[in-house]
Design a protein around this nucleic acid. Sequence first.
DNA 1: CCCTGTGAACTAATTCACAGCG
DNA 2: CGCTGTGAATTAGTTCACAGGG
Lengths: 250, 250
Amino acid sequence: MAVRPGDGEPRLSGRAPAAGKKAGAEPEPAVVPDQETGGAPARVPDVAIRRLPVYLRALEELRAEDHEIVSSADLAARTGYSSEQIRKDLAYFGAFGTRGVGYRIDVLVDRLRHILGLDREVPIALVGAGHLGTALARYNRTRHRDVRIVAIFDSDPARIGERIEGLEIQPADAMEAVIRRLGIRLAVIAVPAGAAQAVARRLVAAGVEAILNFAPVTLQVPPGVVVQNIDLTLELQSLAYYIRPEPATG
Amino acid sequence: MAVRPGDGEPRLSGRAPAAGKKAGAEPEPAVVPDQETGGAPARVPDVAIRRLPVYLRALEELRAEDHEIVSSADLAARTGYSSEQIRKDLAYFGAFGTRGVGYRIDVLVDRLRHILGLDREVPIALVGAGHLGTALARYNRTRHRDVRIVAIFDSDPARIGERIEGLEIQPADAMEAVIRRLGIRLAVIAVPAGAAQAVARRLVAAGVEAILNFAPVTLQVPPGVVVQNIDLTLELQSLAYYIRPEPATG
DNA sequence: CCCTGTGAACTAATTCACAGCG
DNA sequence: CGCTGTGAATTAGTTCACAGGG
């Protein structure tokens, strides 16, 4: 069952057209941002977008090891994706390599960061400072500057004012105001299942366009909002499928 | 960008039959368990497997609301997947519905649980009892019985003996022995990046066949072992892509 | 040469559309 | 009828294979 490494694909479907019933199901192929990206061509598959951060991480490792040039084959060995796949993914955004040589690591890192929008800091809101939310905030804030949690909200009065890695937990009431003030467009939901949908609605109303949802529910969001779900139970349940056939000897 | 709800696809490639010791990249389409499953046909796509737990959850919600019958359209509305997709996924495993009527919820729940191997308790090992590991264990143990963490390991002597939801943290040294004794075949890795590969190797050596990995590294595992990665940073970085085009007004 | 970049071929997955049957 | 079950059509994604250029 050996799995390809950089896993965890999304299903960021209905990229343009509606997810809802009413919205006439448009068949159009969904055009990618572009301009801002440094000229992304239309139609980059979501699966490819999800691989870019994996390449980026591998490149940063290589750079830390004092490499300057990398071939798609080297990246393939590190990431587990095929070299053709990597070349194709990169080629969606332009020709960054040198034939017969490979890619300059620093150039490619800059390019990928720009494509992903990581060349400016991406401020993130975290809603829910329970055990999971706290662990996520702690991890994120000790390591990352590009995608960084800059606001934490919780509905428990007892937690308000407490700090996680220097960042104060704010009351849920303040959510809209703070998100607007900081221009936050990406949020993480780490609240109980029962509260998640309401939180999502408020986030979207406040201007959030992308949500990473850890609550075990299917969020309903308007078209144009991207949701990525991470659900421990679902992952474990689907992994259970792969271990089912009892070991030969029983 | 509206996303379909029950997200988070995997890339469980190389499902390869015969989890033999010797490697050897087989290109064959990978036959699904079967027999044990209640007669699964060959070749069920991984993406379909990953949707089954989503259906299962929706069905259990419906049952809790005292519904007895559900149509694929109802499930579609709850899960965000299309009704055809749902029917096709279910049909991989047999004809569980009644034409003109729908599916009996209790029958379908039983079927899905059996297909996923959740009709016997699936014991799980958690390696790493840091903030994240602790949060995961707490969440899992307060809710689930089907996929249940039954052993927790940590390398920090200060944590040994401490309990999380009644379960004692054991020393990392005990890993192999405990996994063998309890017949654990599914494990969760929640250790720092630097330790993850070594942990994965030990787990596999002790008999683990499926790993849910929270460490930000690409694990190398032998063929026959399934790895699913969950990586907060990667998720946030790819979501950043979708919010890039600045809001019109800047 | 060597490795990138890319159309073409192929494979996988989804959606369509309708026959089939309670 | 109404909704399942499923081949056929379509669309998406990957791999092949080779031309192209430093």
